[in-house]
Amino acid sequence: MLDDRKSRVLRAVIEDYIETAEPVGSRTIARKHRLGVSPATIRNEMADLEETGYLEQPHVSAGRIPSDKGYRFYVDALMEPMSFTLEQYRQVYSEMIKHYREMERLIQEAGKLLASLTQSAAIVVAPPIEQLTFQHVQLIPVDERDVLVVLLLHPNVVKNKIVRTERAFSSAELIQLSVGLNQKLKGITYRDLGPTVLREIVGEFGEIGQVMVELLVRGLSSEKDEQVYSSGMTHILNQPEFKDVEKAKAFLEAFEQKELWLNLLGEDSQGVRVKIGKENFHSDIQDCSLVTATYHVGGHVIGSLGIVGPTRMEYARMVAMVELIASTLSELLTDMK
């Protein structure tokens, strides 16, 4: 544990470095932060902080920069929490409510807003279809033997597919079949569609039942996994840490790996989480920090979102913005019920 003076010096170095992206010297700290001690004393404290792993010196003649350990202590013990304002909430809500009727569009918009608010790269993991609940089925005649199947899954996911039947069905027959299918499927989650339920659908609804089973088992199988949406890639590439072409290239390649982000954002714990530098297991993002949170429907976690940027980020503001987007998305998804 650091004493009060070392903590104040560390905080000053970190906040200066976040602002300027330049190594910080003792004279700068003495001039800007008025810690009540001489530059020589600050220099000694910075040397101690370097020796204990909280600061690093990139070059012999340079000032100091924070280490991952320094950032971690800052986030856990020194950072002044920041809350989003009512005006920020109203602005985000007014943008997201435009996509209220379709969950996929709403989730994508959440990622775009998060990237814009933080000027960072944003990632949103959408829930897999197997977590969703059947809300409504409708069969609509297209022509003599083509039927449009409309599936509405909660919360507000719509899937459409035109299927061809062996015989023609009248509008009245399709209405009756739709009623029966709704009675059978409403309230069931996709993952609960076991062999017994599927056999019952075929047995009770004949050819239309067979078509429905084909659609449910094969037509939607490619959507069983979580979807990963990303936004704001150019924001992170504008940071001075990524002016190096090779470093930028390595990050871009990592950014395209869906499994990487599913693993990094896959925790179900509530609240905002911060992973700093080498706390991230993938070597190509160990110069970065992640700020992530889960979002939910009625308290049940269904997905996660977050931002990625250099370790030199405004952690308090990032945490506040991630919390704002996650809580607003959760509110809108819950209201869809």
Rank of each mutant, 00 (worst) to 15 (best):
Q88S: 15
G299L: 04
R11Y: 03
Q176F: 00
N238P: 02
F281Y: 13
V179K: 00
G209C: 04
I65L: 09
T28I: 02
N280E: 13
D68I: 09
V125F: 04
N156I: 07
L55Y: 06
K249V: 15
E246C: 13
Q286T: 07
R145F: 13
P310M: 04
E19P: 00
P23V: 13
S222E: 15
E246L: 15
G209P: 03
E246K: 13
H136C: 00
T328W: 08
L332N: 05
K337S: 04
T294P: 01
V179P: 00
L86E: 15
R273K: 15
V211M: 05
V142P: 01
G180N: 00
G298F: 01
R145I: 15
I129S: 04
A62E: 10
G70M: 06
F242D: 09
E104M: 06
R8T: 05
F255S: 15
E102Y: 10
P39V: 14
T133D: 11
S231E: 06
H282T: 11
H136A: 00
K275F: 09
F205E: 05
V142K: 09
L148Q: 09
E15Y: 08
K186M: 08
E331W: 03
A250Q: 07
S94Y: 06
T196Y: 04
D4C: 07
L117M: 00
L2P: 10
N280F: 08
P195A: 03
T133L: 14
D268Y: 10
S231I: 01
E246S: 12
D335T: 07
S170V: 04
E314I: 06
V274C: 05
D284F: 12
M313F: 02
E223A: 11
G70F: 01
R5H: 15
G194S: 06
E51C: 08
R90M: 07
G187A: 12
V124Y: 02
G277C: 11
G180I: 00
A115V: 01
R312E: 05
F134R: 01
R11H: 02
Y100P: 08
A77G: 15
S116H: 06
V301C: 10
D335E: 08
I307H: 01
L153S: 08
G232V: 08
I97M: 11
R199Y: 09
L153Q: 06
K247V: 11
L198K: 05
G194W: 06
G299H: 03
I208H: 06
V291M: 05
S178W: 01
R167P: 00
Q239V: 09
I175H: 07
T189W: 08
I29S: 03
E204K: 14
V13S: 00
G187D: 10
L153C: 11
S116V: 04
E87R: 15
S222P: 09
E200K: 13
D76P: 05
L260V: 12
Q270G: 10
K161A: 09
M96S: 06
Q135V: 11
L215Y: 04
M103S: 12
L49K: 12
T118L: 00
F134M: 08
V308M: 11
Q286H: 07
Q227G: 01
T334N: 08
G203S: 14
P240E: 13
Q88Y: 13
H154P: 02
L260A: 07
E204H: 10
